[in-house]
């Protein structure tokens, strides 16, 4: 990525810069800079026909192209003063904002208000996926009136598979394992487990488990 730029050295005198000229057919650096930012629209014939102006615009465009690299290389060499900048962040995020809806758990005591959160269920599905080599759960969606006791639900799981994974086989096995885990940890009536696969580099396919 850094390529041949790294082996060159600056010319000692700096050399002429395309932006040194004070005026390009009556245009200032400011107006050329502005013209670049407007993506050269509407086209200005006096600018487009001036070699000096074109030279300057080319330089500005080169600078623009290089900008991401400058920041990326600064990021590469950035050193945090201490290590607990990460824990400071993690300590302040609340997992409970991902709790989602409450899925009821039945009890024969009328004063009991028991539930498992949607967030907990997503975690269950992710954990199931972690047990399968060659794939990773990305997102989990529960569709249905899951806040009602014994509600019917459709579970849609987006997964990513890696090179060499037998997508169809994994999709099916994983879907069965999800159904089993949900039967264990929830009182939902799961009608469908839909596994959608993002195969890295290939097209998505749907594996429906009935």
């Amino acid at each position: 990525m850094t390529g041949s730029d790294d082996t060159r050295r600056p010319r000692p005198d700096g050399g002429p810069s395309p932006l040194d000229e004070a005026a390009f057919e009556g245009h200032s650096i400011e107006s050329l800079s502005d013209y670049l930012d407007r993506d050269r629209q509407p086209a200005d014939p006096t600018i487009e026909s001036s070699p000096a102006a074109q030279h300057a615009l080319a330089a500005l465009a080169r600078l623009r192209a290089v900008a991401p690299r400058v920041l990326a290389s600064e990021a590469d060499s950035y050193e945090f003063p201490h290590d607990h900048w990460i824990t400071r962040i993690l300590d302040q995020i609340s997992v409970q904002v991902r709790a989602g809806r409450d899925i009821p758990v039945a009890h024969d005591v009328p004063t009991a208000v028991l539930s498992i959160t949607e967030g907990a269920v997503r975690g269950v599905v992710r954990d199931v996926g972690d047990g399968f080599a060659g794939m990773l759960v990305e997102r989990v969606r529960l569709d249905g009136d899951i806040e009602s006791p014994g509600a019917r639900a459709v579970v849609t799981v987006d997964i990513v598979t890696f090179a060499g994974t037998d997508v169809a086989a994994v999709g099916e096995e994983f879907g069965r394992a999800v159904r089993s885990a949900l039967a264990k940890h929830t009182e939902l009536s799961v009608t469908d487990v839909v596994v959608r696969v993002r195969d890295t580099g290939l097209t998505d396919e749907e594996v429906r488990d009935r």
């Binding site: 997992v95 709790a99 028991l114 539930s115």
Partner: peptide
């Protein structure tokens, strides 16, 4: 006395 309501929410499994 017995509580009027006891809410227990499972936020994480495992």
């Amino acid at each position: 006395p017995q509580p009027v309501a006891v809410t227990v929410r499972v936020g994480r499994v495992g």
